[in-house]
Write a protein that binds this DNA or RNA. Structure first.
Lengths: 394, 394
DNA sequence: GGGCTTGGTATAAGTCCTGAACTATGGGGC
DNA sequence: GCCCCATAGTTCAGGACTTATACCAAGCCC
């Protein structure tokens, strides 16, 4: 149970180890030479640390590649079965779990429907723990091989040890999710807001790859965003940063379900669009209703207004955060984006300053809404890469 | 011209040196023991590095303090005359320079008025270089003693080596300010947007002290903001983050001087307020005109509208950035804030979500508009603390 | 003056990175 | 087949740091 000795010197080794591991994770396969170039570390150090990683079973050698006229280089990669991670998506209507290996290949999954309105914390926690046992059994993975479990939860997740969850629209008021789960399993637990985990999934494996400053927007029934600055999710003072849906685009405008007036969500949320189009609540599911609306010429005025408002909201994001990339996501965002992306880009351009607008690209998300669980699992991987080792067990 | 050897090991010493220097700078006077506690470094290392710093003339011993029943501790502090820094405020109507020592005590200053509309780059640069000579002569400081010059400029300042300035409302389009100034002096040059330098001044010495997540707003003729996340100014991908003045608070609203419609600046900028109040351009200076307006009961409707718009804008900042503190600054912001702070707070509360709103305090800046030059000078100090030494000279 | 408390320093040990020499592996010219 | 060269990776001595431990310094209290 030796502490990591964060002084400064023992930490150098740990830091280099983490740096190499991270590089290897995102570069997939590299030779020691590549790693030396990419990290700036000397070849000797790379050899040294890599030897450790191989001894620990985290990294393996994976074949060789000719290098015109010299010794072929040995490729290294992370042994994907070194450990497994669990991602949990707690949604308004269901709880979904997925088990991945370190390469994020799915090993097993489980899903539990929630009765409408029946998402009391005890029920949800029971589902998660049951699902955990189920996916482990299905994949034949022992608990000791699991590096951790990440949960994407609705609402604000405070990053304290207890992982307090505040879900205003969900009826959760300061639920200590971490403590509750840890009472039922010894696996390390991580959690974050669902929009933020989804943003991290797009950043690592989707439309955000390679960028360091990204805003991922999430447009569904509600409207939110996840802001990534310098490769890291921006949380603010109490983890609630990025509440884009309730920024004001019309002083004294329409009343929003949050109680304020003129919120963006009251103009571009799926409910608002369908309400202005159909007059009343749609009969079928919202998703096909919105798809139908996008194909209907008589919906044009409503859509034009929506594009103008979305452009204003996107312009705000560009002006305030100056990202390199803005990604449209969420089921409604993807539908609208697929139909109207050029118009949306133009509307954003009319509302943003020319300098930051020239530096940004506005794109569609690539992963779909299932990415919440995947992103939740990346919380565990991120921790693994940061410490360069498995989290300490009890 | 030895490179900083960023590998990893030589850097440890440099890092510790910088850490100690920074701690000492913000703690004012500390003993070696205090430093050991504050930094987590071992007493031996502290002694070691401090000895270096004393040899280099950066730190001096400053008296002793009894410590009930033991050896008195020797206090250490930074020798404020080790070096001097220059801060420059390039405003729409004037160029101001101030010379400070390392304790930010003013040594000399200079000011040059700009004819309205006559802020061509060459004229401004000439003023800066003339002012530099003037303040150095006044204070009897030699150029070799100056650690650097920081410039707070209007518009976006790209943090590339040439320090490109884009002032959309100012008529500067990609001016390489750094290169131009370096052609006239050998002193290292730094620059940033004026709102950002002012924000850093408030963060270090004013209303932002002790906070890690702050949004500093700057309301004058134009409207801007500086966002500090985790103690560091947030710049985004190309240094233009925080352009609050051109976020949209009314889709299809009033035309702003940036060309877009419904910008916040078009509603709460000083020009907009005076325009709606007086009907035409004010006779005297804007500042006293605005003060008069705030005391005039007939201006009430215009002020009510302004408060509502300001509240919407502040609510956006709270929702998106989730800061612990929001600070009203800029000459107009301070005037309005002094008169209407409770109403502004209430208006912001109506537009922000309850959870982040409960965590934030909205306050007035404490430093006044002169803080732009002070903050510009802190750019140099920040660099000094980061490298733990003077920037390398040519 | 002796014990006690607190502040600071020297010394030796241990850890880590790195540059230079060295080994490994293959291609191509003749 | 032999030699040279190019590229990849490793070994080893050397140097730079931090730090634990023991030690000195300086003052209070009795």
């Amino acid at each position: 149970m030796g502490r990591p000795q964060r002084g400064t010197l023992r930490g150098v080794r740990r830091g280099n180890r983490a740096l190499l591991l991270r590089t290897l994770y995102f570069e997939q396969e590299s030779s020691r030479q590549d790693l030396s170039r990419l990290t700036g570390l000397s070849p000797a150090t790379v050899s040294n640390v890599v030897a450790d990683l191989i001894t620990d079973g985290i990294v393996i050698e994976a074949g060789a590649v000719d290098s015109d006229g010299g010794r072929p280089r040995t490729l290294l990669r992370i042994r994907e079965s070194y450990g497994y991670v669990v991602g949990v998506d707690v949604g308004e209507t269901r709880v979904r779990l997925e088990l991945f290996d370190l390469a994020m290949a799915e090993q097993a999954k489980a899903e539990y429907a929630l009765e409408p309105g029946a998402h009391e914390p005890p029920a949800v926690i029971e589902h998660i723990l049951a699902g955990l046992g189920s996916v482990l059994a299905d994949a034949g993975v022992d608990e000791s091989q699991v590096l951790g479990m990440g949960v994407g939860a609705p609402g604000i997740v405070e990053q304290c040890p207890e992982l307090l969850v505040h879900g205003q629209t969900f009826g959760w008021d300061g639920v200590p999710l971490g403590d509750r789960l840890r009472a039922g399993t010894s696996i390390p637990v991580f959690a974050d807001n669902g929009a933020k985990t989804m943003g991290q999934a797009e950043l690592w494996f989707g439309a955000g790859q390679g960028a360091r400053h990204v805003v991922m927007t999430l447009i569904g029934t509600g409207v939110g965003a996840s802001v990534i600055t310098d490769g890291v999710t921006y949380r603010g003072a109490s983890s609630s940063a990025g509440e884009w849906g309730h920024t004001t685009i019309a002083v004294n405008g329409r009343v929003c379900r949050c109680g304020a007036r003129g919120c963006l969500e009251a103009y571009i949320g799926a409910g608002a669009l369908l309400g202005r189009y159909g007059g009343g609540p749609a009969a079928g599911d919202e998703e096909s209703a919105l798809a139908a609306m996008l194909g209907d010429p008589t919906a044009r005025p409503v859509l034009d207004e929506a594009v103008a408002c979305l452009g204003a909201g996107l312009g705000d994001l560009v002006n305030l955060f100056n990202p390199e990339r803005v990604i449209l996501g969420g089921w409604a965002g993807l539908l609208i984006g697929r139909a109207l992306l050029p118009e949306i880009r133009a509307a954003a351009g009319r509302n943003a300053l020319t300098q930051p607008m020239a530096q940004v690209s506005i794109e569609l998300g690539r992963l779909g809404p299932e990415a919440v669980a995947l992103g939740a699992a990346t919380l565990v991987v991120e921790d693994f890469l940061l410490r360069g080792d498995a989290p300490h067990r009890s």
